[in-house]
Every structure is written in C-alpha cells, then in structure tokens.
C-alpha cells in the first residue's frame, strides 16, 4: 500500500524501548475481570509511552478495553498487571500529574461555572481571590467568558464539557487524560470543540492522552495513534500522524486526513467486525 508506506509505521516491539524522556510509560499492562466463573481479559500486555507535549490517542472498537486502560492510568482501577510510570516513577492510584476528563457529563450541578472550575484549586487550599482569578483564566481559555455565574443546567452539552475541561486544566496536570470527551456531542460541535482543545493544547504544550473510538476525532487531534485489537485489547500498531500544526477543524477536508482515516479504518475494520459479531451472538 503506497499510502501506508508514506506514513511512518512504528513497530509494536519498538514501543517497549524507552522514548527520549517520556512523561508517561505504560508497560506490559494487563487486566482481567472475573465474571462469575468466567475470566475475561480486557487489556492484554499493552505497552506505550507518551512524549512531553504530544497528543497520543488510543483508538479501538467498543469492548477493546480502552476505558479499562483509561481507568488504570487514571488510578481508578487497581489490581492490574504491569506498570504505569510517570517521569520514571511507578504510580498506584490517582496521581496529581494526571487530570482526567470523562465521557459522561461530569460538572457538579450544584456549583456554577466558576465554582466548578475553581473546585480543584479549592482542594489545593488556594485562597478565594487567587483561585477565582485562575478559574477565570481557564474559563476564558475554553471560550466561556461571561458564563461564570451560570449553573450547568443552563448550558448546552458542549459548554458543560468545556467547563469540565477547564476544571481539569485548572488543576494544571502534566498529562491530560481524556476518555471520549466529545462522545455525547453532535458532529459539528465535536469538530469545533476539537479545534478548541487543539488550540489550548498547543498554547499550553499540554501532554494529552486521548481515548476514543472516533476515527476523524483521532486524526484531527493526534500526533500518534495507537490502534487496539478487539478483546483482548492488545496493541495492533502505532501510527504517526504527520499533519501540519496548528490544525483547525478544516483539516478534515484535506486529502491527507482522508488517507489517514482510511488507513486506520483498514486496521480497525476487522476488529470492529469481530466486536459486532460478538455482540450479536451474545443476543442470541
């Protein structure tokens, strides 16, 4: 395949070699769940590393263990095999270097926008005026100035997700860990919000680990994409996305974008088909 040859493939075996100063290293992580007498391997021997300032995306079909991986890295799931390291140190449980953005709506409905964003700063014991100033800075960054006193119920889904992103950024994590953050949004909002996140990521040089099943979203946002197999979730391959930065939502119209999407789909198709057959046979 000519297109594939022009893109820089990285061999899976190469991944276990340490990248120059990676911020996050996931090494040989496996996770099994016991469902009654059966044991299901959700994630099997997954290794990768994330370099400072890059957007690294994990993509895979539903049921490939992406969210399990998200929960393991974020410290919400324990009892896994392998290691997660930040700056060379093994971590267990949640870590202040990681800020998580969830797929589901996660703003606190009883707090207005500014108090939602200031929440992690409150936990850090920061004084009121300082934390409100800082919260305003991040609210402005996600384009929600003027909505500081609004309650989440008064905002659209996309705006609420921006509040959640601003809240996580206000925590100033080294790694922004996002699990399908735009999954609940419509296609246009998804593209525009993606553009916004890219703009912020470039401005802050924010190391970002994105979990998604959406091909366009992955190509639009990423520097590298890890493709996972369907159950058990293993690394199929890691692909470099060499699209110019800064990227806007218009990148989706480019020829190169289409080629990347087609290439990832070629890899994912087989996995997604397996996932679909599994889901169908479970219904029989």
């Amino acid at each position: 395949m000519k297109v594939a040859a022009s893109m820089n493939r990285i061999d899976v075996n190469e991944v276990s070699k340490p990248e120059p100063d990676p911020v996050l290293v996931v090494e040989r992580v496996s996770m099994k769940f016991n469902l009654g007498e059966q044991s299901v391997t959700a994630v099997d021997d997954v290794s990768f590393s994330v370099r400072p300032g890059e957007v690294f995306t994990v993509i895979g079909p539903s049921g490939c263990g992406k969210s399990t991986l998200f929960n393991i890295i974020g410290g919400l799931l324990g009892h896994y095999e392998g290691e997660v390291r930040i700056d060379g140190s093994k971590i267990a449980g949640s870590h202040e270097s990681i800020g998580m953005v969830f797929q589901e709506e996660s703003t606190f409905p009883w707090r207005n926008v500014i108090d939602n964003v200031a929440f992690p700063l409150e936990l850090k014991g920061m004084g009121k005026s300082e934390r409100l100033d800082r919260a305003r800075h991040f609210i402005d960054m996600v384009g929600l100035s003027g909505f500081e006193r609004h309650m989440p119920a008064q905002l659209s889904g996309g705006m609420r997700q921006r509040v959640a992103i601003a809240r996580t950024l206000a925590y100033e994590p080294r790694i922004l860990l996002m699990d399908e953050p735009f999954a609940a949004l419509d296609e246009q909002t998804k593209l525009l919000l993606g553009e916004k996140v890219m703009e912020i990521q470039q401005r802050l040089k924010q190391t970002t680990l994105l979990i998604t099943h959406n091909l366009s979203e992955a190509v639009q946002l990423s520097d590298r994409i890890l493709i996972m197999t369907y159950r058990p979730g293993r690394v199929k391959r890691i692909l470099d996305i060499k699209l110019d930065r800064p990227r806007t939502a218009d990148v989706v119209g480019s020829e190169a974008f289409g080629r990347y999407v087609a290439e990832i789909w070629a890899d994912l198709r087989e996995e997604a088909t397996r996932g679909m057959s599994d889901a169908e046979s479970a219904r029989r």
Partner: peptide, 9 residues
C-alpha cells in the same frame, strides 16, 4: 462519574 472526579483529584 462525579465520585470518579473526586477520586481523580
């Protein structure tokens, strides 16, 4: 998810 937000912090 709200409890997970707390755990993440």
């Amino acid at each position: 998810v709200l409890i997970n937000v707390g755990r993440a912090y």
